[in-house]
């Protein structure tokens, strides 16, 4: 975290139009290395659409999204395929949990580690020593990740049978398994009770401090947002209406208006 001030993800004048609907309108966001940043706004403000543009699910209508590599220049990623963007170090979770629900917890994380392995079809058929060792390595690594997310007691459970909060944590674990530098969390505590929320808050801090992963999160739970994030972007009807520290945002009349109406 040598260069805290430099942005690592630079979203510039992003717009996304569906039919006649302008879901995102000229939004610019700059995420700095090592920070925890939140994206908030009323329902339908376009938060998840921004995530979808960043992670390649949608191709933005206008604007640019770039990863900044410091002196090595920047790399445009808008419009690339989701798997390519993930390989570049951006991982996400989903608002409505999308686990591989009939696979075990371990397998879910192993899928996240997919690209750290190389064995192709021929290796799979041969199943030589190197391939077996590689598989063993990924199991151990996945176990470590699950331990960090305090999910190791569920390791051989089928994902579908996990308690709700654990499913959300497993999504984060799976995303972390892809070795990202930026983690995008889409409503990570939705549906959690206060106890679980508190725990997840710690986890998010831990991920940033220990794993050195930058975090951008969408959340409706204001106490979590205020506790955990260093900077907040506020979105309303696809436009950015405010940006600043939690204290700035709390007192911003525009934000209050957006949330409470006129």
């Amino acid at each position: 975290m040598s260069d805290v001030a430099a942005p690592i993800l630079d979203i510039h004048n992003l717009s996304m139009v569906f039919g006649g609907l302008r879901a995102i309108d000229d939004v610019s966001i700059h995420i700095k290395s090592g920070e925890i940043c939140a994206l908030i706004g009323p329902n339908g403000a376009g938060k998840t659409t921004i995530f979808n543009c960043i992670t390649g699910v949608y191709k933005p209508t206008k604007g640019s999204i770039a990863i900044e590599h410091g002196e090595r220049g920047s790399e445009r990623i808008e419009g690339l395929k989701p798997n390519i963007i993930n390989k570049k170090g951006l991982a996400r979770t989903f608002q409505n949990i999308r686990l591989f629900s009939n696979m075990t917890v371990l397998e879910n994380v192993m899928i996240g580690r997919h690209n750290s392995l190389k064995a192709g079809i021929f290796k799979a058929i041969m199943r030589d020593r190197a391939t077996r060792e590689e598989e063993q390595r990924v199991i151990d690594e996945s176990h470590d990740i699950l331990k960090k997310m305090r999910l190791d007691m569920f390791i051989n459970e089928t994902a579908r049978n996990l308690p709700y909060g654990a499913q959300r944590r497993l999504e984060i674990a799976r995303a972390l398994a892809t070795d990202p530098f930026l983690l995008l969390l889409d409503e990570p505590v939705a549906g959690m009770n206060p106890q679980e929320t508190k725990e997840l808050e710690e986890t998010i801090n831990l991920i940033r401090d220990r794993e050195k992963v930058t975090i951008l999160l969408i959340e409706h739970d204001m106490s979590l947002v205020m506790n955990v994030s260093e900077r907040i972007y506020v979105l309303d009807y696809g436009r950015l209406i405010a940006e600043g520290t939690p204290t700035d945002i709390k007192g911003n009349p525009e934000v209050i208006k957006a949330y409470l109406g006129e």
């Binding site: 993930n86 991982a91 899928i111 997919h114 398994a177």
Partner: peptide
């Protein structure tokens, strides 16, 4: 297996 369960999540995991 993962692809059959959820293509979108699978792609988001870099596959």
């Amino acid at each position: 297996e993962a692809m059959r369960e959820d293509e979108i999540a699978c792609e988001a995991m870099g596959i």
